[in-house]
């Protein structure tokens, strides 16, 4: 029987503003793709969040830096979620 796992998601910059929180806990199926969780969270959150994270083809924007347990993930579509993963979603920033 598939197991669920709890993960933590932290948002930066405009993502935190759109989410209304800087950090939240989420539940996902163990081994499910990271992108699937992000799509679910974005839809549940707001149209703005969906627009910030996903392009018109419903693909996670390449400019979003996805970090898991302190390391950047360059293949979020094929990355599988496990228990207690610490997800850090970074909006690109360029202010000076």
């Amino acid at each position: 029987m598939p197991k669920t796992v709890n993960v933590t998601i932290t948002y930066t910059a405009q993502l935190a503003r759109a989410a209304g929180v800087e950090q939240e806990s989420a539940t996902a199926m163990q081994g499910s793709p990271l992108t699937l969780l992000l799509r679910d969270r974005a839809v549940a959150c707001s149209a703005e969040m969906k627009e910030l994270l996903f392009d018109s083809d419903d693909t996670l924007r390449k400019s979003i830096v996805v970090v898991v347990d302190g390391s950047q993930i360059t293949n979020p579509d094929s990355f599988s979620l496990e228990r207690d993963h610490d997800l850090f979603l970074m909006m690109p920033i360029s202010g000076g």
Binding site: A13, K62, S63, V65, Q72, M91, P92, I93, G95, G96
Partner: peptide
């Protein structure tokens, strides 16, 4: 780079580290 109360610094040494386009492959 910075935004509001956040900021970040990346040191790029060509050949040794990722570059800015590795971090952001497309213009945000």
């Amino acid at each position: 780079a910075m935004f509001s109360m956040e900021g970040q610094v990346v040191t790029i040494v060509p050949g040794l580290t990722p570059c800015l386009a590795c971090l952001y492959p497309e213009e945000p």
